[in-house]
């Protein structure tokens, strides 16, 4: 199949950027979306034009590096799928595809489709961990974790930090990302000692970054490649309110 692409090209952070049109010819339905871009890039290099820059690494849908707006939807039309796992069989001959970088002031564009998601790392640094130095852990089976709690914690922990939730949110809010880590650790017995401090720290950092506020559009859940539930946002909000009442020394 042949496609017409409109791709956001931006030389660097200070460049205003613009949409540029490209043709993607002889696209096989078995290609991944990124492989389709690889082929376009090879033809650009052959013509002496600089290839389109985009982040990607594992191409198995787990590292969270890739991500772009495809016809206005983060990671494209298939639910529960990262861009690298989206295959061209979901497109048709003659389709016009608009490809843009994540849309969020908190994720500044570095080049073309590549953005800086350092804000996510800073949110984790503000408390998204359990403080246990190497060597000081008790035997793993000394802390039983009810299966249900472990399973729910896992569902939250499955977040790959890709940023689609922020990109799709009309407010550019990072609640789903933040709540996933708050919930993962807050559901485990190991995470209890720092539970209140953690949620306060992470929420404070989230608000310090250029993210917007959550107003329950639920777009984040709809595009999350790991289908993380917005229930975790409610859970984070409950924890945050409790933590606020408990005061700073909790």
């Amino acid at each position: 199949m042949d496609l017409k692409l409109h791709v956001w090209r931006q030389k660097d952070a200070s460049d205003p950027g613009s949409m540029v049109e490209y043709q993607a010819k002889d696209v096989s339905p078995d290609m991944s979306f990124l492989e389709m871009l690889d082929v376009v890039n090879e033809s650009l290099v052959q013509k002496g034009e600089e290839p389109i820059a985009f982040d990607h690494d594992c191409r198995e849908g787990i590292c969270g590096a890739c991500g772009m707006m495809i016809n206005g939807v983060a990671h494209g039309p298939q639910r529960g799928t990262t861009t690298c796992q989206l295959h061209m069989r979901h497109f048709n001959d003659g389709d016009v595809v608009y490809i843009e970088p994540w849309r969020s002031g908190a994720f500044p564009v570095l080049k073309d489709l590549m953005v800086d998601r350092g804000a996510f790392d800073r949110i984790i640094q503000a408390g998204g961990y359990i403080s246990v130095n190497t060597g000081s852990a008790p035997d793993a089976n000394e802390i039983p974790v009810p299966k249900q709690a472990a399973d729910t914690a896992f569902e939250a922990a499955a977040c790959i930090g890709c940023g689609a939730c922020v990109a799709q949110c009309p407010n550019g809010a990072a609640q789903l990302f933040t709540s996933a880590k708050v919930s993962h650790l807050g559901l485990m017995p190991q995470g209890q000692p720092e539970r209140w401090r953690r949620v306060r720290g992470m929420v404070a950092q989230m608000e310090e970054e250029a993210f917007g506020s959550c107003s329950n559009h639920l777009e984040c859940e709809a595009v999350c490649p790991k289908e993380i539930s917005v229930d975790f946002i409610a859970r984070m909000n409950r924890d945050y309110i409790k933590a606020t009442f408990k005061g700073d020394d909790s």
Binding site: I143, V145, M188, G191
Partner: peptide
């Protein structure tokens, strides 16, 4: 054996039996 202890203490959500053990 120490690795599993360390990772469990960090909150890694390992698969569990109904009794809560690994």
């Amino acid at each position: 054996v120490n690795i599993i202890d360390q990772c469990a203490a960090q909150g890694v959500p390992f698969a569990r039996e109904y009794g809560g053990l690994l």
